[in-house]
């Protein structure tokens, strides 16, 4: 079983990725220094630096996919959570969990719990701003196949 989540590859997504790097690291020079000092203890920063440098070039593209290789992971996708993904996709901009719960007329705690699960499984992005947690999704399409997953990478 192979489940693929294809994410947005628009210019907005690319710009948001770059903004995320600025928020996380400050500047590309600062990250470069960090990589020189501590790349052995944190491989994530090497990938972020390479990606940042690539996305800073005038002509570039970013494609992202999330793959689930195990049937147990399908349990992440309850009907309510798929509805949440669909709503966030339509919304196209980050929204607070409070507003999200109001708009879809669901209990805040249940929405918060669902968002947490989706976020822990790489399907929703969470950004804490002040006291609010803003959420968004980059998922655009979901594919499911029972064939060998080799061809999907």
């Amino acid at each position: 079983m192979h489940l693929v989540f294809e994410t947005d590859s628009s210019l907005t997504h690319l710009e948001n990725t770059l903004k995320g790097f600025v928020t996380k690291y400050g500047s590309i020079e600062h990250l470069d220094q960090r990589v020189q000092i501590s790349r052995c203890s944190d491989p994530t920063i090497v990938d972020d630096l390479v990606l940042w440098k690539t996305l800073s070039k005038p002509v570039c593209s970013l494609k992202e996919t999330v793959h689930y290789e195990s049937a147990e992971l399908i349990s992440v996708l309850t009907p309510r959570r798929v509805e949440l993904l669909e709503f966030l996709r339509r919304e196209q901009k980050p929204i607070s969990v409070t507003d999200l719960a109001k708009k879809i007329r669901r209990n805040y705690k249940n929405v918060y719990d669902d968002i947490k699960v989706l976020s822990n499984n790489g399907l929703v992005d969470r950004l804490k701003t002040g006291r609010e947690v803003m959420v968004s999704t980059r998922v655009k399409k979901i594919h499911i196949a029972f064939e060998d997953g080799d061809n999907y990478y």
Partner: peptide, 14 residues
């Protein structure tokens, strides 16, 4: 043109 491809492959929940 440079293309960046970022993929996450979940093998299990952990």
């Amino acid at each position: 043109m440079e293309e960046a491809e970022r993929q996450t492959v979940w093998l299990r929940k952990t």
